[in-house]
Design a protein around this nucleic acid. Sequence first.
DNA 1: GTCTATAGATCGATAGAC
DNA 2: GTCTATCGATCTATAGAC
Lengths: 195, 195
Amino acid sequence: MARTQGSHSGITGPRIRQAALRLFAQQGYAAVSMRQIAKEVGLQAGALYNYTPDKQSLLFDLMQDHMAGLLSAWAALDKPDDPLAQLRAFTSFHITYNLERADAVFIAYMELRNLTPENFAAIESMRREYEDALETLLTAGVEAGQVRVPDTRIAAMAVIAMLTGVNTWYRDGGRLSLEEVETIYWDMVHKAVAA
Amino acid sequence: MARTQGSHSGITGPRIRQAALRLFAQQGYAAVSMRQIAKEVGLQAGALYNYTPDKQSLLFDLMQDHMAGLLSAWAALDKPDDPLAQLRAFTSFHITYNLERADAVFIAYMELRNLTPENFAAIESMRREYEDALETLLTAGVEAGQVRVPDTRIAAMAVIAMLTGVNTWYRDGGRLSLEEVETIYWDMVHKAVAA
DNA sequence: GTCTATAGATCGATAGAC
DNA sequence: GTCTATCGATCTATAGAC
């Protein structure tokens, strides 16, 4: 039953999204053509339009799936009661989750300007929700007397920026293991916000 | 002596770079056409090639100028002797310098993938030099007993990521003044790396 | 669901007049 | 130094055969 055209396996859609994710991250949305994506999956360009109405929707779906996954993974995580322990859990979670999805993280940040206004608003709202989750956590720490920061909103932004920065330099098999990285960052995050 | 074509004023080159900087930052290098840049300056597309050999050189020059300016501005800054005071100076310097050049900062980070390998290496080397400057400063703090971090290299990367993150949310006339932002970030940076 | 073919637009860069 | 005009390539998206 060898097949020479297309995949016919019902997983063409995911393969297209996977190829687009990688290419968008490597070269940027505007620099990647539909023909390139099609070639990566073994299709002609026209066939892509059986899976996405247009290139913009392909980008938006990738970003939306990433943000939704991030939010639901954090929501589903089994969290300790203590606010400071929760903050430690957030630190490890953010580093690990983002490192494992470096392409999606990169796109979700870099390609915001290539979204239509409506799509941009949707993604920004999800990002805001994630920031709010961390700020709420910091506020609980303040009320428990474990955290003291000049401004919980800015502290949330600062912690997220610091942790996401790991993606710019971390490489598998490098000088430090993922566990060591998590420990090092927790030391700094902890001291930065501690009472 | 009214002139109706071109600028003839000897500042066309800078105006082209300024327009390219703004457009590249807003829409991305790949999404901006030479015709768009020309229109912004009031030229036809062909005239741009009197000022740049090609689009790639235009991008590279913008990034190189930005990084060179950052390095020389930090080098020229009058710095205190005390390592911790120097770190405070770095915090204020980085926030202010980058906020005042948001477009260039954005491009220098986002458009690395659109550089040729040679150009990429040149920019990366300058970025590395800036990171080294901060790491050297942290190491001096460790030797003076004022700083204690698990890893000076990672601490340098973490501080830079945290401070550069200001660019993603700060707006003139917003809730906080630039001075307040600097104070807030110094509080967190200081605590994060303090002995 | 994929193919081939193509419409219609736009791209970077160059040539030659002025 | 800027213009007009254009080359040759490439783009997104669609139409219609299979």
